[in-house]
């Protein structure tokens, strides 16, 4: 592992809450690691587990799925699907040997810029400790 190795984290962010929360973190000029790359989705319920698996296959060191707090979904109940779906997916990933720190599901509202920055910091720190993802990664 090279000294300046930085983890790569792919995040799926719901456009109403978490994406806007990340915007707020920007507007407030919060400082967080440049390890994260966001993909804007209409709802965390849009995130197919295959997207998460693909990210890990292609070498992502961590994946974040983030949306509105349960009860606050712009589409009424999309994040409830997320909650159920990913409690299963998370266990499956861990069964496959993935460290739990590499995959997180978080509820970050449009008002929680600081929370977004905090989650990115935590994930980056945790994954930096773990080193690159080797488990599901395809040999490219």
């Amino acid at each position: 592992m090279s000294h300046d190795w930085q983890p790569r984290i792919v995040a799926f962010a719901c456009r109403w809450c978490t994406y806007a929360g990340a915007d707020l973190a920007g507007t407030r000029r919060m400082d967080y690691p440049a390890s994260i790359r966001l993909i804007r989705v209409p709802c965390s319920g849009r995130v197919n587990p295959s997207f998460v698996v693909r990210a890990f296959q292609r070498g992502a060191d961590g994946v974040l799925v983030a949306g509105c707090h349960p009860g606050d979904c712009h589409y009424i109940e999309g994040n409830l699907f997320t909650r159920r779906r990913y409690s299963l997916v998370k266990r499956l990933l861990e069964y496959l040997g993935m460290e739990p720190e590499r995959f997180r599901v978080e509820w970050i509202s449009a008002a929680e810029g600081a929370r977004f920055a905090q989650v990115v910091k935590e994930m980056t720190e945790d994954i930096s400790q773990l080193g690159p993802n080797a488990k599901m990664r395809e040999q490219l």
Partner: peptide, 12 residues
Amino acid sequence: QILAEVEALCLM
């Protein structure tokens, strides 16, 4: 589209 974004971002 989303898978293509995933691939593009993983190239980093």
